[in-house]
Design a protein around this nucleic acid. Structure first.
Length: 427
RNA sequence: UUGACCAUAGCUCAAUAGGUAGAGCCUCAUAUUGUGAAUAUGGAAAAUGCCGGUUCGAUUCCGGUUGGUCAACCCA
């Protein structure tokens, strides 16, 4: 045997045993969104590198060192998308979706970041994202938060924490940045190495530091919320009041700044403490400047993204994933004649009963082997067609999961029998 | 990018203070040539991730590499 080729680091497959979990989460999400007026958009996985540099920010970790960037055969630099927002905005602008229009959009798919792997972190990971364009008021943020909160409820997910903050307008933030830099510069000897580096590039991120030795310094730092104008704080307070009204619990975290450059006003994270070092399951906020920055007409934008791997890991931990569906029927056939009849019967059942799950024995095998496979498949019933049944126009039915004698009925009556059996089980 | 631990049948794990590997599960067959979780018997399944070094000899020691797990950083 030739040497095995291993998977690319951090790019695990979703194996058959877990695809039902993915389908479950995705379909919950899809139904919820579609019933709230959101339409799916599918973007390419590759974009011009420039797009991410311009939208995410040149000095962010993502752009500086985490992108899968390579030259196309014609020399153009392309990048595998590290997140969905940039591509979504670009696609929407490109196709005229944002021209004097409101849009409620969602997407799902793989994202790529060249980071070292760890629990809940992969190089190819999957996000479900939602973006709303053309909504200036905070009611759209509320809609998103309500939506996610409902998703948690429908999935039976417990212990999610919502942390909120506001970043104000870019002017307000710029002013605050100066004040913050002043503060930290005055106490530069207390800063750790990372923070000194950030002081020049991205001072807001210092507030995010997990270094316990910095906790006091950060705790005493000036708070952005105190330096915002009336309009910005008004918007934020209005959002908090509405959340109260809807009984969605939250905590205001004035140190929450998010890693991507394009955010303004509302930012938030839904977090958990059950996923090891990774806490964010869903994060988002407002990014009004981005559309114009990417060449569209100035317009507002709000959105969020959640990590599907993390969500499923959490559901697994909380034992909230549904049992996989079992087949209804495994069809056992002995002999050529029986096989012919069997396929016809299976098709008749599929025509007559919507969503029936029938497995036909393929690959031959004697009676014993076929029944073993039937058992292993998890099917409720085994149907037998042997020489006897073929000759008499009957079919044998054996219960695999419940007490009950094996019976033999006319093939004509099979549909009716199975229909009754299935409705009993589900009803 | 940095650090820690790990890598033996499809799966879960043994083993040898360096002497070319065993078990359980799974699978297949037979006992039962038309009846599934039991039992018994038998079979199949591994150049010990890969490359190199030390050695008479490496699964075992060393180096590298690839992958896994976890953490820092950062993020979904």
């Amino acid at each position: 045997m030739a040497n095995k080729i291993r998977q690319v680091k951090g790019m695990p497959p979703v194996l058959p045993e877990s695809t039902p979990n993915w389908q479950y989460v995705e379909s919950k999400f899809r139904h919820l969104l579609q019933s709230s007026g959101y339409a799916e958009i599918r973007m390419p996985l590759l974009e011009h590198t420039e797009l991410f540099k311009r939208s995410i920010g040149e000095v962010t970790d993502i752009v500086e060192k985490e992108m899968y960037t390579f030259d196309d055969l014609n020399g153009k630099s392309l990048t595998l998308r590290p997140e969905g927002t940039a591509g979504c905005v670009r696609t929407a602008i490109d196709n005229g979706l944002l021209h004097n229009q409101k849009q409620r959009l969602w997407y799902a798919g793989p994202m790529f970041r060249h980071e070292n792997t760890q629990a809940g972190r992969y190089r190819q990971f999957h996000q479900i994202g939602v973006e709303a364009f053309g909504f200036a008021d905070t009611d759209i943020e509320l809609e998103h938060l309500v939506l996610v909160s409902r998703l948690w409820k429908e999935l039976g997910l417990a212990n999610m924490t919502l942390e909120l903050n506001t970043l104000g307008t870019s002017e307000e933030r710029l002013q605050y940045k100066k004040i913050l830099v002043d503060y930290f510069q005055q106490q530069q000897d207390l800063l750790d190495e990372d923070s000194i580096r950030r002081l020049g590039s991205n001072p807001l991120r210092i507030l995010d530091s997990k270094n316990p030795q910095m906790a006091e310094l950060i705790g005493n730092a000036p708070v952005l919320l105190d330096h915002l104008g009336e309009e910005s704080t008004g918007k934020f307070n209005r959002l908090l009041a509405l959340l109260d009204k809807l009984q969605i619990a939250y905590t205001v975290n004035t140190r929450l700044v998010r890693g991507l450059d394009y955010y303004c006003h509302t930012v938030y994270e839904w977090t958990t403490n059950e996923l090891g070092a990774q806490s964010a399951v869903c994060a988002g906020g407002r990014f009004d400047g981005l559309v114009e920055q990417l060449g569209g007409r100035a317009g507002t934008a709000v959105g969020f993204a959640m990590g599907i791997e993390r969500l499923i890991m959490l559901l697994e931990k909380q034992n909230s994933l549904p049992e996989p569906e079992r087949p209804d029927i495994y069809l056992v056939m002995l002999g050529d004649q029986a096989q012919e009849t069997g396929f016809v019967i299976a098709e008749t059942l599929r025509d007559a009963i919507a969503n029936i799950r029938v497995i036909i024995n393929c690959g031959g095998g004697n009676m014993k082997a076929q029944i073993k496979r039937a058992d292993k498949s998890g099917a409720e019933l085994a149907l037998f067609l042997g020489e006897d049944e073929v000759n008499s126009g009957q079919i044998s039915i054996k219960y695999l999961r419940e007490e009950g004698k094996q019976i033999k009925i006319d093939q004509q009556k099979l549909v009716e029998f199975i229909r009754k059996h299935i409705s009993q089980r589900t009803g």
